[in-house]
Design a protein around this nucleic acid. Structure first.
Lengths: 270, 270
DNA sequence: CGCCCTATGTACGCTGGTGCACGGACCGGA
DNA sequence: TCCGGTCCGTGCACCAGCGTACATAGGGCG
């Protein structure tokens, strides 16, 4: 299997951009302003932060910076120490469990409804999973140290993120069952829906190859399954760009796991 | 499929016993003494509690009671409000995700290395999973309210249990991948090992039927796989009682998930 | 225009697990 | 000693997904 590279992705709508690493300087107030502006600009800012009390949110934003994430960037390897946490805005990120260096499987998709770096919330400094950018876009980022400070200061933040950790638990359990029982067709539909939710657009870059790696199946399997969805006019493929045509149809084609997972999120964090 | 009942299990080594529900009365000191005695008696008391500072532990034990759990008892249905938390001693408990009322899948096994009721640690009062007693034996139990009080009082307890929640997360991710990639034989070996660890005995009650439900496969599938293990002299079956003969052999036959999971536990909580 | 790379589609035999059906073994109780 | 219930084992047709190999199409670029 060939390695994931950061080569050109000619049809990507969002032009590749490196992570913005210029160290941000200035007073805390200035930083906050900048971050707040970023939040305003972003089409859909991060939902976890949006729910915080104004004061806590502003304080937290003061130690954030906005970064542009590039498709296929690896933000953190499995077992590595967590250096930063991320709150995606219009980017989305997948959490991958590597097995035997050949196979790996995507177990979670994180968009502006979630965060990357949950282990820190639970007092653990290493990530059990590989973190890969799946959809280019912007995210708020802060260092692990700064994040821990904020956690210390804001009970509201703690509470919110612990609940998010719970949602993750429930989702993983659901995914485990899904992987065991549901057909490839249904699972494909489910993941496309999850992508759709997090991409905030009807069209996004996603090849069969990548999908196959996410679902833990052969590329050809995805081709077949996607062919069915295309016949039914639910999606359209054009060389790596997929367009969602009929969301309701997709939901009908997907397994109940999609519903189950979104429901728990709403119940616990909505 | 026939429903799980609490009927007689003639060959069970531990005679069936009802949950001891006599309300415990007396001073806090007396309660603590009683609980401590229980801990001493138990062959392998709960590891999460064992690691706590003496003061915190004694305080917590004061609001615990010891209960005897019966095989196949359902301690909590999925979606139900959590009424009690459990710290198994020599019992063990499985966490099951119900799908469509026909199928269900076991996603976790909790013994004296863990606890039941993690959602409370994360600020959520409902269980996402069904909780079923898989191995009869004793456990410490306390009410949700009392537990939350203890959490409030003891930072050490909070820390410990948050780390345990992390381990659960990592294990679930592993299980999701395991369900996707590994053969029935390997998964069976893995679960038998997990059972073995938590049963604190080489022999325990476990029919093919039950195993099949745990692994999400047909009973016959388990029969075949178990037949292989038996041929290789790794285990022995006798009408619902399984005996582990060759633990090392089993480890070799199991997928790497067993190792991965025990390793994370040790790393984070050992 | 034509080359080449990437992405999608087709074909074929194989295997692990499914669903169903039934036979046999063990064990406790009448 | 026989009966009935529980548990284990076998057989068979079937199918989803696997591994592999190869064919075709879109599009950038020289």
């Amino acid at each position: 299997m060939r390695a994931h590279t950061h080569d050109a992705f000619p049809l990507m709508k969002v032009p590749p951009a490196r992570i913005d690493d210029r160290s941000q300087t200035g007073t805390a107030r200035a930083l906050a302003k900048r971050a707040v502006r970023a939040m305003r600009r972003a089409p859909a800012a991060n939902l976890l932060l949006a729910g915080l009390p104004r004061k806590d949110r502003l304080h937290l934003l003061a130690s954030c910076e906005t970064v542009e994430l590039t498709f296929a960037d690896v933000l953190c390897e499995a077992e590595d120490r967590i250096s930063h946490v991320y709150f995606p805005a219009d980017s989305f990120i997948s959490l991958v469990i590597p097995l035997n260096s050949l196979a790996s499987l995507e177990v979670e998709l994180v968009g502006n409804e979630g965060m990357v770096g949950v282990p820190l919330v639970l007092g653990v400094h290493a990530s059990p999973l590989r973190v890969v950018v799946q959809g280019a876009g912007s995210a708020l980022r802060m260092t692990a140290a700064a994040f821990l400070d904020e956690l210390e200061l804001s009970p509201a933040l703690r509470n919110k993120l612990q609940r998010y950790a719970f949602v993750l638990l429930a989702q993983l359990a659901q995914t485990a069952a899904c992987n065991r029982f549901h057909s490839l067709d249904a699972r494909l539909a489910r993941w496309l829906l999850m992508m759709h939710d997090r991409a905030h657009a009807d069209e996004f870059y996603l090849t069969h190859e990548v999908l196959a790696r996410m679902l833990g199946v052969r590329r050809v399997g995805v081709t077949n399954a996607a062919g069915l969805l295309q016949e039914r006019k639910l999606v359209r493929y054009r060389r790596g760009n997929i367009t969602i045509l009929d969301r309701n149809g997709l939901e009908a084609a997907s397994c109940e796991c999609y519903r189950a997972v979104t429901d728990t999120y709403k119940k616990v964090l909505g």
